[in-house]
Design a protein around this nucleic acid. Structure first.
Length: 302
DNA sequence: CTAGGATCCTGTCAGC
DNA sequence: TGCTGACAGGATCCTA
């Protein structure tokens, strides 16, 4: 779930809470989740937080860096000393005075840590940073700061929507002309930062059916798609990442922030905000996909 | 090169 | 209640 806006939200949170703190100790609970020698990061100060697409880079002193990718279910949760037992769920917003949480939204954001899904624990000067990851697809990886930008994954990333020219994306779509547009914009080498949520939201905003073959889009449609991608991600970053604020609904139940701003994602069965027709869920590129069948007409692709 | 499918792993939920 | 299969917000690897 963590897509670009969620990772950016985490970057800002860590920047506020953890920069200038030293990593006193690293405890690895799952070998697969931590790549590289933990001794290299112990005793080093967190100096800078950078983001490359959905990857977070934590620069440490001494020329050492750590790349974190949350993949599907990763979380980074910071708790100041004394709050390991948890924080008030009703107040568990993006940033409190004692804690910060971001990534895949679950109760771990405010319940006692470590828990069953905790994979790595970083003990800092005045608090603890927990790397949680239910499905173990994510990782923390130690690498020299000087080599961050040469890293195979980071190097392969395309531009983010804000820097992407319509003409460049249009050209890339021609090369992938026989794939559904949704599959293509999920590819980080084509355009960087979109995941399943923002792909659906951006396509809805641009009134493009996700199964439309990439090569069928006009330059105008590509422009609109980029603009909509920027808009949905800007809105999400502004509100602290879609997953962030577990908030309390009027009836007292909990909800995640997604339901406050998503127009199609996980809204199947509900009315379209534009036309009132029912949002439906389909499968495209083997991913759950949400559309308004009225606003996003399926192109025959013939 | 592209396109499509399987795969890493754990948990939850619907249906029987 | 227990079992089974589908599915989950990412990315890579394999095949054709």
């Amino acid at each position: 779930m963590p897509e670009l806006p969620e990772v950016e939200t985490i970057r800002r949170g860590l920047d506020k809470f953890c920069v200038h703190q030293k990593i006193r100790k690293v405890k690895i609970l799952c070998e697969k989740s931590f790549i590289g020698p933990a001794e290299l990061v112990e005793g080093k100060e967190i100096t800078r937080l950078r983001r490359f697409g959905k990857a977070l880079v934590i620069d440490l002193g001494g020329g050492v860096s750590m790349m974190v990718h949350l993949r599907m279910t990763g979380q980074l949760i910071y708790r100041e000393d004394g709050t390991e037992k948890g924080v008030d769920a009703a107040k568990a917003k993006l940033l409190t005075k004692q804690s910060f949480a971001g990534g895949h939204p679950t109760d771990s954001f405010f319940t006692e840590l470590p828990n069953k899904q905790t994979r790595v624990i970083f003990e800092l000067d005045s608090g603890t940073l927990f790397f949680n990851d239910q499905r173990k697809f994510g990782f923390c990886k130690v690498l020299p700061t000087a080599e961050v930008e040469q890293d195979k994954f980071i190097k392969s990333l395309a531009k983010e929507p804000w820097e992407m020219e319509a003409s460049e994306l249009y050209q890339k779509l021609q090369r992938r002309k026989n794939s559904p547009i949704k599959a293509v914009i999920l590819d980080q080498k084509v355009i960087c930062g979109l995941g399943n949520i923002y792909a659906d939201e951006a396509l809805f905003g641009a009134r493009i059916h996700p199964r439309t073959l990439a090569g069928k889009l006009s330059l105008e449609q590509v422009k609109k798609l980029i603009r909509c991608a920027c808009e949905v991600m800007d809105a999400s970053i502004k509100s602290g990442g879609s997953t962030m604020a577990t908030y309390v609904r009027a009836d007292g139940t909990k909800g995640d922030y997604l339901e406050l701003f998503a127009k199609v994602f996980r809204r199947e069965g509900q009315p379209c905000v534009n036309c009132g027709n029912e949002i439906i869920k389909i499968r495209v590129a083997d991913r759950g996909t949400h559309i308004c069948p009225h606003c996003q007409k399926e192109c025959k692709n013939d």
